[in-house]
Nucleic acid binder design. Structure first.
Ligand SMILES: [Mn+2]
Ligand SMILES: [Mn+2]
Ligand SMILES: [Zn+2]
Ligand SMILES: [Zn+2]
Lengths: 153, 153
DNA sequence: ACCGTATTCGCAACGATTGTTGATTCGCAA
DNA sequence: TTGCGAATCAACAATCGTTGCGAATACGGT
C-alpha cells in the first residue's frame, strides 16, 4: 500500500473524500506487515479514534481493494484477511494457529501448466499450508485453532 | 474420491453408518468432475432423493473431508467448493464467471521459497486467476459475476 | 429381532458482511 | 467562504453460508 499522503491524493482523484476516519485507516494499514481481518482493523482503529464504526471500516477497505492498494485474501473459512503488501509475494498458512505470513517465491513463472485450454492467467497465487515454527515447538501448546465439534464426543 | 462401495466400507470401519442419504451423495460425488458448492450438491441430491436436508449434506461433506476423500476449497469469498478430485492438481479460477477448473502443474516442488524460518510445509496450493475461454469469447456476454453495488451510481 | 447409538431433519442461531434510512457533519471545488 | 454532495453514525434489519440443538428415526452388530 502506498503511504497515506499518496493515498489521499489518489482518493481525491477519483472523487472520494479524505476523512479523518480514512486517514486513520491509511496510517494503520500502511505500517502494518500482517494480514488483519476487518474486525481486528476496526479494533486497532478504535484505539486511535473511539467511535469509528465497523461499517466505515468495511467501506474504506472495499475502496482500497477496488483501487488495488489492498489485497483481499480468502485463505481459510471465516473472515477475509486484508493484505497491505501488494508486491509479488505468496503466503504460508499455519493449519494449527491460523497465522498467515509472507513468503517470497522464485520460479513461479517457470511452472509448467497443462490444460489451460484458452484460459488467460492474470495472477498466480501460491499458498503453502503446514505448521509454523511456534506451533512445532510447544507441539500442542500455543495453537489457537478450535477442533471440529461436529461429531459427538 | 473412492467409489461408493469402498466408501461404504470405510464409513463402517470408523463407526459411521451407511444411510440412503449418504449413498446418494457418494454416488453423486463419485462421478462428478467439477467443484460444486454444498448448495448445488444439495440441489442435485434433491433430484434423486426429494426431502434430503441441506443439514445432512453438510454433515456428510464434512465427514468426507475429514476422511480425506474430499477436498474443501476456499477460492473466492462466499461458499466453499468441494472437490472429489484429491489427486495432485491445482486450479484455474475465472474472475468473471467464477468457474473453477482443474489444471495439472509441473515444477511445483522446484519452487524456491525464501523466508520459511522453520515453517514446515505440508501442502502447496497453486491458484491461477484470470479469464476463462468462454468469458474471453463473448467478451461481456456470458459472465455471471455481479458487480459491487457498494457505491452510488 | 433387538437395542444402543448414529443419523436425520427442521429450525434456531451464529459470524461475517452488506443494505437502509434519516439526521448530522464535513470535505473540498468553485 | 459558501454550498453541495459525500461521508459518517446509529441503529437496525437482512443476507449468506454454516453449525448447534433436540426429538424422532433408522443402521447394524449381536
Ligand atoms: Mn501477504
Ligand atoms: Mn479440482
Ligand atoms: Zn502456528
Ligand atoms: Zn469465465
Amino acid at each position: 500500500m502506498r503511504p497515506p499522503n499518496e493515498l489521499s491524493t489518489a482518493f481525491r482523484a477519483i472523487g472520494l473524500k479524505v476523512t479523518p476516519q480514512r486517514q486513520v485507516l491509511f496510517s494503520l494499514l500502511h505500517d502494518h506487515d500482517g494480514h488483519p481481518s476487518a474486525e481486528s482493523i476496526h479494533l486497532a482503529a478504535s484505539a486511535v479514534m473511539p467511535g469509528i464504526s465497523l461499517r466505515t471500516v468495511y467501506q474504506t477497505l472495499n475502496d482500497l481493494v477496488a483501487m488495488g492498494e489492498l489485497q483481499q485474501l480468502q485463505l481459510t473459512p471465516g473472515s477475509s484477511r486484508f493484505d497491505p503488501n501488494v508486491s509479488d509475494h505468496h503466503h504460508l498458512v499455519c493449519d494449527r494457529c491460523g497465522d498467515v505470513r509472507d513468503v517470497y517465491v522464485g520460479g513461479v513463472t517457470g511452472l509448467e501448466v497443462q490444460g489451460l485450454e484458452g484460459f488467460s492467467i492474470a495472477i498466480t497465487d501460491v499458498v503453502f499450508r503446514g505448521t509454523c515454527a511456534t506451533c512445532l515447538d510447544g507441539s500442542s501448546a500455543t495453537g489457537t485453532r478450535t477442533p471440529d465439534p461436529t461429531r459427538p464426543t
